[in-house]
Every structure is written in C-alpha cells, then in structure tokens.
C-alpha cells in the first residue's frame, strides 16, 4: 500500500514535469491576461457594479479553462500512453496499474490546482482593483470549481478507456452540460407537471454528476452568503462522487487490454 502510493507520487511528479514542460501552463498565463483585459473593457462599457462584472467574467473564464484542461488533456492522458506505447515502459517496472493511473491523475490534479490558483489570484486582484469585495465565499466558489474539474477529469478518463478521443470529448462535454442543466430542468413548470418525466430526471440526477450543486457562482455574485451546511454538503457530495469516478476509471484500466 505504502509502496503503491510512493510509486504513484513518483509518476505524478514526472507527469507534472512533462505537462509543465509542454508549455500548457503558458496558456494559463495568457488566459489570466485575457481575464484582466476583458474585465477592464467590460467595466468600461457596462453599467452596474464593475467589481461584480470583473468577478463574473473572471470566474466564467476560470471554469472554462478548468473544463478545457480536464476534457482535452484528460482525453489523452491515458489513451495516448497506450497508443504511443509509453505505458509499457512504466508497467514493466514494479508498478501496479492502479498506481500508474493514480500517479497520472495526481499529476493532472496538480496542474489543475496550479491553473486555478493562478487564475484565482488574478481574478481576486482584478476584482479588488475595481472596488469589489472578496470573501470566504470566493474561496468556496473556487474550491468547488476545482472539485468539479477533478470529477470531470475522472469522467473523461473513464470515457477515454472505452472510446476513442473524439467520442470521449463529445460525450464528456455532454455529461458536463447535462450535469449542469438537470436541476434547472426540473424547475420548469411543464416538466414539473409531467410525473413520468420527473421520475426519469430523478433517475438521471442520481447517475449524472450534479454539477449545479458545485456551482455557487450566482450566490457569490448576488447574495454573498450561503449556509455552511450547504457548502459542506456540496463539498462532501463532490468528494464522494469524485472518488467513485476514480474507482470506475481504475476498474476500467485494470481490465483494459493494452495492445
């Protein structure tokens, strides 16, 4: 057990070095710059509270980048290893398949963390510059976004183990959109009045990740507060769902024929 985790950490470290050197992080900086510029422009041309506009744009781009990294890098994180045969090198060392998967995933989770931290700091500074306020709820928003991107990463990896890259990208984006829209759909009156449709949606709600639970941006922007147990609830939901998806990915990878 200890050994498996130690091996996973080695793999994570080199995964991080590899991604870092591939200059993906450079894009994060460009995005950060874009956030700052867009916020300036938007604040100039819109009525309303400039601080809130900056926060809105910033958080929007932050989740966009997190989703982008999860989907597009996750789709090839493991499948490229199999295609390019690099996986044979690692797995011919005393490394179990679960350790290998955990290591690759941890490396990506670290990349996601740095991406979110960097952008978070930029958004924070820009918002304050425009006279907005940044409180604990901002940290929660970012934390839950982070968890959302990790769950999405695991979903993407699971898909990539059974389907090709294009199908993986399309289906995980679909799952992402569905996970956001489900709850909202249930509030439509036409849907509410249809018992069968409601039942179907209830089932889907259990299967699909309930991403709207992790999206507290509207509260941050307009209400500035949320009860604590709501936040902890969201956090534990995200963590449990994430762990479950990792287990799914691990089972798929252990069973996978590497040829």
């Amino acid at each position: 057990m200890y050994n498996s985790v130690a091996k996973a950490l080695i793999i994570a470290r080199y995964t991080f070095i590899e991604v870092y050197k591939s200059k993906i992080m450079f894009n994060v900086l460009i995005l950060g710059l874009a956030i700052a510029v867009l916020s300036f422009i938007a604040a100039e041309f819109t009525y309303g509270v400039p601080g809130r506009v900056a926060l809105d744009i910033g958080l929007g781009l932050l989740s966009l980048s997190a989703v982008g990294i999860s989907v597009f890098m996750g789709a090839t994180l493991i499948s490229k290893e199999i295609e390019q045969r690099t996986v044979y090198m690692t797995l011919s060392r005393p490394v179990g398949r679960v350790s290998f998967l955990l290591g690759r995933v941890l490396g990506m989770v670290l990349i996601l963390l740095i991406n979110i931290l960097l952008l978070g700091i930029i958004i924070c500074s820009v918002t304050i510059m425009f006279g907005g306020e940044v409180g604990p709820l901002f940290v929660w928003t970012i934390l839950l976004s982070y968890i959302e991107s990790i769950i999405l990463l695991f979903i993407v990896i699971s898909c990539s183990l059974v389907a090709n890259t294009i199908i993986t990208v399309i289906s995980s984006l679909t799952i992402y959109a569905t996970g956001h829209a489900l709850i909202e759909t249930m509030t439509f009156t036409t849907v509410k009045s249809n018992a069968l449709l409601m039942k179907l949606l209830k089932i889907l709600e259990v299967v699909f990740p309930n991403f709207s639970k992790l999206n507290i941006k509207p509260y941050l922007l307009y209400e500035q507060n949320l009860p604590h147990d709501f936040l902890w609830n969201a956090l534990s939901y995200g963590t449990v769902y994430g762990l479950m998806m990792f287990v799914v990915a691990a089972i798929l990878f252990v069973k996978k024929s590497l040829d």
């Binding site: 590899e18 690099t86 044979y88 090198m89 060392r93």
Partner: peptide
C-alpha cells in the same frame, strides 16, 4: 518486474 529489464518493440518515451 524489479529484476527484469524490458524494452518493447519500437519503444517510445515521454517526449517532453
């Protein structure tokens, strides 16, 4: 595995 050195056919390694 710890005692084996294995090189696959047409090996490829992390490019970066």
């Amino acid at each position: 595995l710890g005692r084996i050195g294995y090189l696959p056919e047409r090996p490829y390694f992390y490019p970066h």
